[in-house]
Design a protein around this nucleic acid. Structure first.
Lengths: 156, 156
DNA sequence: AGTGAAAAATATTAATC
DNA sequence: GATTAATATTTTTCACT
């Protein structure tokens, strides 16, 4: 791990996460520094891979994505060929916003965002026809209570 | 919902999500338009709530957050008082990046990001001492296969 | 490593078609 | 509503401490 961060770095990261549209001047003021050091630190953290990228977060419902499912998957197949095909299937499908390989008796969890339950079923049928899975449980979100991308960093 | 989007709007949103650091000129070029209309549309979508906010996504592991848990919660209590306290507990804890109320026999799912398993246990003990829950299952992520905030929009 | 000023690039507004 | 031009802001570099 090459990049070492101090408290000022963490304050800057917190500001960038909180509002990525601020000017350097605003960030410098918030963190008690000035423009150039803030800029140098941001560049350092970007080059070092601490900052992955910059994006705009949209309102899924306003765009017609009314259904969010968490999908729990158990599989009996664990060979490399199956796993490769499964991973490719997940990566190629834009409805899959997140996918994790798990410890324990559930093997994978997915977060799938689609227009409605019918669209989920289409996704599901396509997935299981492409790769064999032993058991699938879909959990339907009724309400998004909280959603943030801000990591729980501690600053002095 | 007041905001009606056409194909150019969706192309712009896709670019903003893909790389939120591009200049208006670059976006205009990508979507086949010019600066001013792109800017007007972005403002309209921001004012209309389609664009929620702008942020920087960080590398959790580089910052020392090595553990990600999905937490499945069943509860026997469903009265308003309990629910209010539970929601406040989730919203006030920065380790909880996502929380959804579910349909079906599992009532809630959380995404919790912490430094390590010990930090998760601390979080868990604090949570259950604050609000009573019937059953908790923690799924530990071994590997993040995919992670994106880009919604699966279709453009012409 | 931080400060302040200068230069370059970009965002924002306005005028024009 | 799009295009181009004008202005204001902001980013980026640089010289100095």
């Amino acid at each position: 791990m090459a990049v070492r961060l101090d408290d000022l770095d963490r304050k800057i990261l917190l500001e960038l996460q909180r509002d990525g549209g601020q000017s350097l001047d605003d960030i410098a003021k918030s963190v008690g520094s000035s423009k150039t050091p803030v800029w140098n630190r941001i560049r350092k953290m970007r080059d070092g891979g601490v900052i992955k990228h910059q994006t705009y977060l949209l309102d899924a419902e306003a765009l017609g994505f009314e259904a969010c499912f968490f999908v729990l998957i158990r599989t009996s197949e664990h060979d490399a060929g199956w796993q490769g095909r499964f991973l490719n299937a997940l990566k190629s499908r834009p409805e899959v916003l997140e996918a994790h390989r798990l410890a324990g008796d559930i093997d994978y969890i997915l977060k799938v965002v689609v227009a409605n339950a019918r669209a989920y079923d289409t996704f599901y049928q396509a997935l299981i026809s492409e790769v064999k899975v032993h058991n699938v449980t879909a959990l339907l979100s009724m309400e998004e209570i909280k959603s943030t991308t801000v990591l729980p960093m501690e600053v002095g």
